[in-house]
């Protein structure tokens, strides 16, 4: 049962992360999409930092907490989603996905 939950969490999360990354990969992310994207990244990373640790994705959770925090600030209007930030976010999400994959493979062993 636990393995099943892990698997589901892993799969849906990685898929969502990949979805976000595709959006972030567009040449330019339209400004009107920013709030939606912000919300999406915040919610997802919030979920990861909350649920990740109990499923053994410690590294990923740690990483996602950084994103969560940043996007919390953006969401609260205390930080702007600059092109640079979008770029760094894309980088961070790539690392996050990679960490997920690694941690998942370790758990499998």
């Amino acid at each position: 049962m636990l393995a099943e939950i892990k698997k589901q969490f892993y799969e849906t999360t990685v898929k969502e992360l990949e979805d976000i990354n595709i959006k972030l990969s567009h040449e330019e992310v339209p400004v009107e999409d920013h709030p939606v994207l912000t919300e999406q990244i915040f919610t997802l990373t919030h979920q990861i930092s909350g649920t990740g640790p109990m499923l053994g994705f410690d590294g990923a959770s740690k990483l996602s907490r950084k994103l969560e925090r940043t996007f919390y600030d953006i969401r609260a209007g205390q930080r702007n989603l600059t092109p640079q930030l979008i770029w760094q976010t894309k980088r961070a999400i790539e690392v996050l996905i990679q960490t997920f994959v690694e941690e998942n493979s370790i758990q499998r062993q």
Binding site: F9, E39, Q40, T43, R75
Partner: peptide, 20 residues
């Protein structure tokens, strides 16, 4: 729009977590 997205997301995670 932001609020709508927030609500949508919240519903979405409840759905996902609920199933899980």
């Amino acid at each position: 729009k932001e609020l709508i997205e927030r609500i949508f997301r919240a519903m979405h995670s409840l759905k996902g977590g609920g199933a899980m």
